[in-house]
């Protein structure tokens, strides 16, 4: 069994202090300001236990929402919201593109499960849309809303191409995953990744995660899961439209839309210049048309 050498420093199960740089023991990474951190979510090993959802709500003191039955199989949170910063999607389908394909029992369905979260985009559209500067990039290259600055205008909500950020109806401010900013500052792994029993959610330094994910895709291709690909790494689907890359990226085995992810997300800011040009061209065309229509005809007295 691989044990981190630092684990020997803590031989007792009851501790009278917080373990410094605990993430070294739990995620194998030391959290330092100025580096880029994120999540790699391998959906092929997600079992839909929702430990991530619970850990997120527990640590962030978030209330349960969407009370009642959604009618969507095992999904009770429904979607990401101001109070649900992790959402486990349950996609029921026959076979799973190579995984268990043709091996299902007649009474069984195939399940695709994915723990969705804020993608902490490199070029975050929510941050670009925020007029007050409440959304900012942290020293860990994550995107966080400063609650005391947010004025609840909601511009960030339509700006997000993934539909992540939401304005709370109770406090009127925008809320989303902070990638456990407070835990990172304390040297702790984010709650969702720490609680994941299958390591479907892996936390780490982005460059390491991207290498690990590429190796995982190669391994899956090697065992016959040709449909495996990455969503959100540089140059891959999900990192389109000038988003750069996503700090929370995914390994998928079906089309992004199946997981309720956009196939080609874009920055709304990309559409500002064409929209402005179209508007100006329209004004010019209308001015020209009116000049022709209402100009005095030859022979008419002005």
């Amino acid at each position: 069994m691989n044990m981190h050498p630092r684990a020997l420093e803590h031989a007792y199960s009851t501790l009278d202090h917080v373990i410094p740089n605990e993430s070294e023991l739990t995620a194998g990474v030391r959290i330092e300001a100025g580096r880029s951190y994120g999540f790699f979510t391998d959906t092929t090993v997600c079992i839909g236990c929702k430990a991530c959802e619970v850990a997120c709500k527990e640590w962030n003191n978030l209330p349960a929402d969407n009370i009642g039955l959604t009618g969507q199989s095992f999904d009770n949170t429904g979607a990401l919201s101001a109070n649900s910063w992790r959402h486990v999607a349950f996609v029921e389908k026959s076979g799973a593109n190579g995984l268990r394909g043709g091996q299902d029992q007649k009474f069984q369905s195939g399940w695709l499960m994915m723990s969705d979260v804020c993608k902490h985009c490199h070029n975050a559209p929510c941050l670009e849309a925020c007029p007050t500067g409440a959304l900012f990039k942290t020293e860990f290259d994550t995107v966080v809303v400063q609650q005391d600055i947010c004025n609840g205008c909601g511009y960030c909500v339509p700006a997000c191409p993934f539909g992540v950020i939401d304005v709370s109806t109770v406090d009127g401010k925008a809320h989303k995953c902070t990638l456990c900013y407070d835990r990172l500052k304390g040297g702790l792994e984010p709650a969702c990744a720490k609680s994941c029993p299958t390591d479907s959610i892996q936390f780490g330094e982005l460059s390491d995660l991207q290498i690990r994910a590429a190796e995982r895709v190669e391994h899956l291709h090697g065992i016959g899961v040709d449909s495996a690909y990455l969503y959100g790494t540089p140059g891959a689907p999900g990192a389109t439209g000038d988003l750069g890359h996503l700090n929370a990226f995914f390994l998928l085995i079906d089309r992004p839309e199946v997981y309720n992810l956009p196939a080609a997300p874009t920055r709304p800011a990309n559409r500002v210049a064409p929209s402005l040009a179209t508007g100006l061209a329209t004004v010019a065309a209308l001015a020209l048309a009116s000049a022709f229509l209402f100009a005095p005809q030859r022979g008419e007295r002005p």
């Binding site: 962030n60 003191n61 209330p63 609840g152 406090d171 401010k173």
Partner: peptide, 24 residues
């Protein structure tokens, strides 16, 4: 006993904790 953004947990005299959200 716990504060996160505008959410807080209040522990009453019976030791029961309640989750509050600060109204706008």
């Amino acid at each position: 006993t716990i504060v996160q953004e505008s959410r807080f947990q209040l522990t009453d005299d019976n030791g029961v904790s309640h989750l509050f959200l600060l109204d706008r």
